[in-house]
Amino acid sequence: MIRHLLSGADLDADTATEILDTAAEMATVAGREIKKLPALRGRTVVNLFYEDSTRTRISFEAAAKRLSADVINFSAKGSSVTKGESLKDTALTLQAMGADAVVVRHPASGAPHRLANWVDGSVVNAGDGTHEHPTQALLDAYTMRARLGRLAGLSVAVVGDVLHSRVARSNVLLLSTLGAKVTLVGPPTLIPVDIAAALAPGTDVSYDLDSVLPNVDVVMMLRVQRERMNDSYFPSAREYARRYGLDGPRMRRLPAHAIVMHPGPMNRGMEITPEVADSPRSTIVEQVTNGVSVRMAVLYLLLGGNNR
């Protein structure tokens, strides 16, 4: 098993599949009255969060606690971080405290890579800047596999602000590794240059959502910040929603079996309408549930739970 999970590129097909299979076992724990395994008893997991992200933090926290690990939440607010302590000094502090795993969320791309140089424990990237969010991609893959029965051969549209999306990058990498076909959809201003060459050669790009929808098994809507219009990525929230938002009529262009995903938090009325978000096709709530199982699997496997 790999030591750190920093990028979707760290996962080959076998490793990714092992994580998804392990997550399926972990999911059975959630159905029990006592939702706890002793696998990581005595191990310490630190949640090091430099950005507010309640949903990701509590997902990791629940995952670690269900595995009986000791969990320390270290947030940028109310700690020495606000006094200007460097990432390296924080890393050395965590190291001295004996952290077995550090789950890090950081606004700067690559911060988890830097951290991995300075601690002996495993580093899990819980979202870094506009770079990656590999456990989100794993839970998305898990959700697709659970709903559609497979990943190989699936056609997945990822729609929206790909340029600033760490979810999109990790999904392109992981889904390609697992044999799915990804089409990135959005206005040209929000599709980064050379994306296929950068991430996965088979990746397609389209600027026309309507032409893509009839041919996909999965459509994944990305959060789009309204403020992007202030930087001329698109003229207005209304125009964005009209061209790239997923509403009821658009949803009905999808094949009957196709599912709609969103990593949350949603901008209802911007990239997705309530009718779509609350429809039976939507997996948005399942994604949250699956997130805990997948993060349990990641922590369990990274910390060597399977060979102890």
Partner: peptide
């Protein structure tokens, strides 16, 4: 901007 805008900046999620 953080690095050359191109394939690598796209992969690394750094502003080009």
């Amino acid at each position: 901007a953080q690095m050359h805008e191109g394939e690598v900046s796209t992969r690394l999620g750094l502003i080009g």
